[in-house]
């Protein structure tokens, strides 16, 4: 996995997507996991589950992200599928670190919205 490639995708996500900045740690985690996993499935050409409202939401967000990645980072299309999974796992870790584990937002773990 190239750290540089992960960082490029991460920097793009940071300025573009609001789903990583939801109100609490648990819904940030839910979004990062759901959306990046759906994106991984798309890169692998798998059928995306759209049975529940949340699955449809992750699909909608992931679809835009995959399109953006393909347009702005053409190198991603050249990668082996396993490599793409590695890079997207790295992206998830980085998003978690910046928006959850090392976030200085003291409201993230408040029990109430």
């Amino acid at each position: 996995m190239s750290e540089q490639q992960v960082k490029e995708l991460f920097d793009y996500c940071q300025v573009r997507y609001l789903w990583q900045f939801f109100s609490r740690s648990w819904d940030r985690e839910e979004n990062i996991e759901g959306i990046v996993n759906a994106a991984n499935d798309m890169f692998h050409g798998r059928v995306i589950k759209k049975h529940t409202p949340m699955e449809r939401l992750f699909y909608a967000d992931a679809k835009e992200m995959v399109k953006d990645f393909r347009e702005n980072f053409p190198w991603i299309e050249q990668l082996e599928p396993t490599k793409i999974t590695e890079i997207l796992d790295g992206l998830k870790s980085m998003l978690r670190e910046y928006t959850i584990t090392k976030s200085l937002n003291h409201e993230l773990n408040h029990s109430l919205y």
Binding site: L18, P53, R56, L57, Y59, A60, D61, K63, E64
Partner: peptide, 28 residues
């Protein structure tokens, strides 16, 4: 939380943001 209705945050100001928001809603 109470009704299971998903939340989709969008930006309604700006061309590329607005287009992105519309695309996400339509994909849903």
């Amino acid at each position: 939380k109470q009704y299971g209705i998903p939340r989709l945050d969008i930006d309604s100001w700006g061309f590329s943001y607005m287009a992105e928001g519309i695309r996400k809603i339509c994909s849903f």
